[in-house]
Design a protein around this nucleic acid. Structure first.
Ligand SMILES: NC(=O)c1ccc[n+]([C@@H]2O[C@H](COP(=O)([O-])OP(=O)(O)OC[C@H]3O[C@@H](n4cnc5c(N)ncnc54)[C@H](O)[C@@H]3O)[C@@H](O)[C@H]2O)c1
Ligand SMILES: NC(=O)c1ccc[n+]([C@@H]2O[C@H](COP(=O)([O-])OP(=O)(O)OC[C@H]3O[C@@H](n4cnc5c(N)ncnc54)[C@H](O)[C@@H]3O)[C@@H](O)[C@H]2O)c1
Lengths: 206, 206
DNA sequence: CTTTAATTGATATTTTATTATCTATTTACA
DNA sequence: TGTAAATAGATAATAAAATATCAATTAAAG
């Protein structure tokens, strides 16, 4: 099953390996080595090997890893086989862009419903997803056993939405707002903080 | 000036401190301690102190850091005073969402022009930004001395766009596609890889 | 005026992540 | 059949990041 004690940096590299495996498969390759993968992704082979080891893949000396097996192992580890259902809150520009993104369904995430407070949006469909009023979230999440929530509301509402998600039993929050969220220990928050990324970029080019 | 040898993790925390400082300022506080900041962001005080030290801030024992001075230091370090001009390529769902985001201008980034290959988009304005044909990018970038590029095209075009950006003299690329880009050493790429984030989230909630 | 508590800043330690080294295995080929 | 080359896997070393310790400083309380 999914190895809970893989490091975050290693976990973040797995989708890159997966893409690489798919590409090599399409090129007709049956086996691939860490060196192959590493040279494509500009990673040292030893790092690729350690990550694949942690993911549970095994290879053969002189040959490398079997493409089909590697695909299966990574798919399993990444949860691409059975997508996780998620709610998204805030159907503005970013919320709509994420909802439109069909690729997520092949990468373990299925956005099943959206929530907003704007009467202009409630009841409408965006890319096939219905927008519900915010006050329906807790009840629906519990009935549908939703464990993942995405926050794309204005910053000032973010903590309120997080509180509602926690109340609803959600255990993983994908936070696109620039605010730090306070949640209980058993809830995992991943901050997609664009401002953090910008500060690195700006620093590096100046 | 901007400390080029700050670590990436530390740099990424600076915008959080900045937000915190602004919030405390609005509460009327004149001085703030690492402990204050840390408790708001769930960081240990020593980490906040080390980061602020690297950013060039100095505080006074028993009192903490002066709010106004901290704001100035962070603003300078983050480049919030003089926004960096950037081009964005790919005016689809995500490209439009980013272009619509006014907050960037206060956080060091000014998107000055957009590029696309679709005849339906070229010549139009989105949120006040004109869309140009892709073949105008190199010339315009050189004339306007553009150093930052944002890629929000489909994955299959990403490397081509990166090559064009490199040719145009762009030194920092914000890559929203899931592909690894090959660029020369003097070009910095920051990958906003949503699939990587998903793999951590899915792993942690299962 | 003295003591106390809080805080910074510098240094040291620990932990985590990355990279290197070494050994055993396997394939390809002479 | 034997040998060389490439590679996985295990272990060790290094580097980077986070955390702890301690001394110096300073404001406030007694
Ligand atoms: N657009 C971007 O590219 C971008 C970039 C970086 C960060 N962000 C962050 O993402 C968030 C959303 O950005 P956006 O550009 O989509 O904003 P937006 O204003 O376009 O959309 C916000 C949406 O949230 C809804 N909303 C407001 N309050 C709500 C509440 N309490 N509950 C539920 N819904 C509520 C609004 O009705 C609206 O539909 C913001 O926090 C922003 O800082 C966006
Ligand atoms: N939408 C999301 O929320 C989301 C999430 C994760 C990743 N991404 C990634 O971001 C990228 C863009 O996603 P999107 O949803 O906005 O896609 P989209 O299809 O909505 O938009 C792509 C845009 O790029 C333009 N384009 C195509 N080829 C081009 C080229 N060679 N040069 C210039 N422009 C070109 C298209 O005309 C279109 O306007 C994709 O790589 C996607 O994987 C998007």
């Amino acid at each position: 099953m999914s190895n809970q004690n893989m490091s975050v940096p290693a976990l973040r590299r797995l989708p890159l390996y997966y893409r690489c495996v798919i590409a090599l498969k399409e090129e007709g390759k049956k086996f691939i080595s860490c060196t192959d993968i590493g040279s494509r992704l500009e990673l040292v082979p030893i790092q690729v090997r350690k990550d694949l080891q942690a993911a549970g893949a095994t290879g053969r000396p002189k040959v490398g890893y079997e493409v089909d097996e590697l695909e299966t192992v990574l798919k399993e580890m990444l949860g691409y086989g059975k997508p996780t259902d998620a709610f998204i809150v805030g159907m503005g520009n970013l919320g709509q862009a994420l909802t439109a993104h069909k690729e997520f369904e092949r990468c373990g995430l299925e956005i099943v419903a959206a929530f907003d407070t704007s009467p202009l949006k409630i009841g409408r469909d965006y890319f096939g997803k219905r927008v519900f009023p915010l006050n329906k979230l807790v009840n629906l999440a519990q009935r549908m056993n939703i464990k993942m929530g995405i926050i794309t509301t204005p910053a000032k509402s973010a903590q309120d939405i997080a509180d509602i998600m926690v109340e609803a039993g959600i255990k993983g929050i994908w936070n696109f707002t620039p605010v730090h969220l306070n949640v209980p220990d058993d809830v995992y928050v991943h901050n997609e903080n664009f401002m953090s990324s910008l500060s690195v970029l700006i620093n590096r080019i100046s």
